[in-house]
Amino acid sequence: METEELNIFDEYRNLLGIETREDVHRKGHWHETFHCWIVSREEGADRIHLQLRSSNKKDFPGLFDITAAGHLLSKETPMDGVREVEEELGLAIAFEDLIPLGVIKDQIHQEGFIDNEHCHNFLYLAKENSDLRFELQKEEVAGMVSADFQAFSELCMGKRGQAAVEGFKMADDGTAEPFAKTIRKTDLVPHSQSYLEQVAVRLKQVLEKA
Rank of each mutant, 00 (worst) to 15 (best):
N14L: 15
L203C: 08
I99T: 06
H49N: 12
P61E: 04
G161I: 09
D80G: 11
D10A: 09
L16F: 11
A151I: 06
Y195I: 02
M1G: 13
R184K: 15
S130H: 03
S194M: 13
A69Q: 06
V24I: 10
W30F: 11
A180W: 09
N56M: 15
K127T: 15
T3A: 14
K127N: 12
L101F: 10
F179G: 03
F64S: 01
K159T: 01
T20Y: 05
E4T: 13
V39W: 00
S130F: 01
E19D: 14
A92S: 15
E76F: 14
Q205L: 11
F64Q: 01
N7D: 08
D173M: 13
I99L: 08
V199K: 00
V165G: 00
H31A: 02
Q198V: 11
G28I: 09
K204N: 11
F113E: 07
G143K: 02
T33C: 05
P78V: 02
E128L: 10
E86S: 09
D65T: 09
S55K: 13
I114C: 07
H118G: 07
H191Q: 07
Y124S: 07
E88R: 07
Y195C: 01
K204S: 14
E197I: 11
T33E: 08
N14M: 15
Q162M: 12
G174E: 03
T20E: 10
D23I: 10
E32Y: 04
H49F: 13
S146V: 06
R13H: 15
E43C: 10
D23A: 12
V189T: 10
Q198D: 10
L155N: 00
Q137Y: 06
F95V: 02
E42C: 10
L203R: 01
S192Q: 08
V24P: 02
W30K: 05
S130K: 15
I38N: 01
A180S: 14
L73A: 09
C36P: 01
E2Y: 07
I8A: 00
H25A: 07
A164D: 12
L203I: 05
S40Y: 04
H109G: 12
K105G: 11
G28L: 12
P178A: 03
K75E: 15
H31R: 04
N56W: 12
E197N: 14
G167Q: 07
R202V: 11
N116Y: 05
F168S: 05
T77Q: 07
E135G: 07
E140L: 13
L73V: 07
D10K: 05
K75Y: 15
N121C: 15
E2V: 09
L203P: 00
R53F: 02
P100C: 05
G70Y: 00
Q162Y: 09
E177S: 15
L52C: 04
